[in-house]
């Protein structure tokens, strides 16, 4: 099957000599919902920038639905919609004009462009604003405008670089369901995000990138299974002075006097409660310490920083 995106040996050295990508291999299957995760400066935007012709690559190969950007750039571009990290529309132009003009750049005649613009502006809740200059939109509306603009030519692959940055919770949820709907209808989606619960909620496959290298490229399910240890935070009725002895478990007190217990996979929580009960400690509430993916992510990036050698997955 053709991959929606296929990247081989991609490197990028910027004009100032900085090597932002050190040989990236990445493939995203058609129909996938894919997350590219990594800390600030990891090389996410550089990678997506090369795919979308905003950045010149130094070396390597990029194919969009089999179309090589070196030899079949126009076809590759036709199949691709891009929502960049930073606002990049003319602030003085009207919302509707921005979207129809973009369609025109893809060769779509005005009547069809207008229909398509109407469809996506309505779906993204911007139809009322169609005659406003872009600068009068709120931050969240500007993001949605960029999504409408990226979709106006109905690309098969949609790339979003931090689409939900600065978007409130309610709107984020509605953007999620919009993207899920697009994905269900067949659009392949790649996004970057710093909200790991977003990746956990939406994506099927995940790659983690750091310092210009892919540390991990696997399914979300496998990634989460690697997480063998989970930390639970228990609030006790009476604050504890020192962590209790719970044989088989590692525990400590957090800064606010709540009890943190590390639980291995398959160990179960019953023993924790039985032992606490015996000690007369009453638990009033419980939560997991952090988003599971976040924990894994932080651990990986830290390992990568502490080991001089590239981590597994690089040599694939």
């Amino acid at each position: 099957m053709t991959q929606a995106l296929d990247i081989r040996g991609l490197t990028k050295t910027y004009g100032d000599g900085f090597q932002a990508l050190k040989g990236i291999d990445l493939s995203v299957a058609e129909g996938d919902f894919f997350a590219l995760l990594g800390p600030n400066g990891a090389g996410k935007s550089t990678t997506l920038g090369i795919v979308s012709s905003l950045v010149n690559k130094s070396d390597g190969e990029v194919k969009v639905f089999g179309f090589d950007i070196d030899t079949n750039l126009s076809e590759a571009k036709m199949n691709l919609g891009v929502v960049p990290q930073e606002f990049n529309f003319n602030q003085f132009e009207k919302v509707f004009d921005i979207v129809t003009t973009q369609a025109g750049y893809y060769g779509i005649p005005l009547r069809r462009a207008s229909e398509s613009a109407e469809k996506y502006l309505k779906k993204l809740g911007l139809w009322d604003k169609r005659n406003s200059p872009a600068r009068m939109l709120s931050g969240g509306m500007k993001r949605r405008l960029m999504i409408a603009r990226a979709l106006v030519h109905e690309p098969r692959l949609l790339i979003l670089d931090e689409p939900t940055a600065g978007v409130d919770i309610e709107l984020r949820r509605s953007m999620w369901s919009f993207l899920e709907e697009m994905n269900r209808q067949g659009t392949t989606i790649i996004l970057t995000t710093h909200y790991l619960e977003e990746a956990e909620a939406l994506c099927r496959n995940i790659a983690i990138i750091d310092h210009g290298r892919i540390l991990k490229n696997t399914s979300k399910r496998d990634l989460l299974q690697e997480l063998s240890l989970e930390t639970f935070v228990l609030d006790t009725e009476v604050a504890l002075n020192s962590p209790p002895e719970l044989p088989g478990f590692v525990c400590r007190l957090d800064g606010e006097g709540a009890l943190e217990v590390d639980v291995e996979k398959g160990q179960g929580l019953n023993q924790v409660f039985v032992q606490l009960e015996d000690m007369g400690i009453k638990v009033v509430s419980m939560r997991t310490k952090a988003n599971r993916l976040e924990e894994l992510f932080i651990r990986m990036v830290e390992e990568n920083a502490s080991s001089a050698k590239p981590a597994e997955g690089v040599a694939e």
């Binding site: 979308s52 750039l73 571009k77 036709m78 691709l80 960049p84 990049n88 750049y105 060769g107 603009r149």
Partner: peptide, 9 residues
Amino acid sequence: SIEELLVSP
């Protein structure tokens, strides 16, 4: 907004 042109064919 030049990027609108650069991403297009």
